[in-house]
């Protein structure tokens, strides 16, 4: 599966906006509404940049990240947490080396595009172990 972007957020307005912004910049993006759905996409082979909301009902962003680590689904993917919270909580300590960036809501569209492009470019230059 090609390298792309996955937005994980329970708020349909956020999902819609982010998809519009990223697709408007010719980026290949998908959106899911929960941590469980994110894990399912990863199990199906998603590979790319994950924009993961922290505050979600049920399985929140931290729970999702922990589950990704347990199943090894974080390997080869870049995770950026999305939040309106001013400062991260201590819950993040154990998984912080898996989170490359922290994107604040509401989004600045240009900043969001720049962030997504930068991290996708990192993935494009990762040496492929199969090559």
């Amino acid at each position: 599966m090609s390298k792309q972007i996955m937005i994980v957020d329970d708020d349909p307005a956020v999902r819609y906006t982010v998809l519009e912004v990223l697709r408007g910049a010719d980026m290949n993006a998908i959106a899911v509404d929960s941590g469980e759905a994110c894990l399912e996409e990863l199990r199906k082979g998603f590979h790319g940049v994950i924009l993961l909301d922290i505050m979600m009902p049920g399985m929140d962003g931290w729970d999702t990240l922990e589950a990704m680590k347990r199943e090894g689904l974080n390997e080869g993917n870049i995770v950026c947490m999305l939040t309106a919270v001013i400062s991260p909580s201590e819950e993040m300590d154990s998984v912080k080396d898996n989170v490359l960036d922290y994107v604040r809501k509401p989004f600045d569209p240009d900043g969001l595009i720049a962030t997504a492009k930068e991290y996708l470019s990192y993935l494009r230059t990762v040496p492929d172990e199969n090559e």
């Binding site: 390997e75 870049i78 470019s121």
Partner: peptide
């Protein structure tokens, strides 16, 4: 820079 190991090379290149 705290980062996953698989990004080491691409991070240096960037």
């Amino acid at each position: 820079q705290h980062m996953p190991k698989f990004l080491n090379v691409s991070f240096c290149k960037a």
